[in-house]
């Protein structure tokens, strides 16, 4: 147990500009706390997140990857997040076949008004990754 307490995961979060990122902004502005393990990368739409970005994040040692977009139907560009949903579902299966725990990849819908939800899902995810331990791809 003590080992997993020391372990501080590195997590990449791809947030779409219109919802996820605005949600993160609101979480900060309204004083919700969330762990510093998460590195946010702003993209215009969650549909911009190429599966390669996610694989590269794992390759360079990320312990977990989050993709945060608008709620289904609310995407600023129409259908972007439907693409993302399907990509992430297939990617999870891909990771599983590669022997990487699919829980390390997570897709969440956070709207611009949900600062509280943003802080909550990030907290949850960080705790889950802490339980899973470091990624096997991490160079030791």
């Amino acid at each position: 147990m003590s080992k997993s307490e020391q372990f501080e995961p590195r997590i990449i979060a791809f947030c779409c500009n219109w919802c996820g990122y605005a949600g993160a902004d609101l979480a900060g502005a309204s004083g919700y706390r969330y762990p510093a393990n998460i590195v946010i990368i702003r993209v215009m739409c969650s549909g911009r997140v190429d599966p390669m970005f996610i694989l590269r994040a794992f390759q360079f040692g990320a312990d977990g990857v989050m993709v945060i977009g608008c709620h289904p139907g609310d995407c600023h560009y129409g259908k972007g997040n439907f693409f993302t949903l399907r990509r992430v579902k297939i990617l999870k299966r891909l990771l599983e076949q590669f022997g990487i725990n699919p829980k390390r990849l997570r897709l969440e819908w956070v709207s611009a008004a949900e600062g509280e939800k943003f802080a909550r899902v990030v907290n949850e995810f960080v705790n889950e990754i802490k339980k899973l331990g470091p990624s096997p791809l991490k160079k030791r």
Binding site: D50, P51, F83, R86, R87, K89, I90, L91
Partner: peptide
């Protein structure tokens, strides 16, 4: 694989998950 996944998932946008 990543580029195939990207292209194919986009075509399957109306398919049940």
């Amino acid at each position: 694989g990543a580029s195939a996944l990207k292209a194919i998932a986009s075509v399957l946008v109306n398919v049940d998950i």
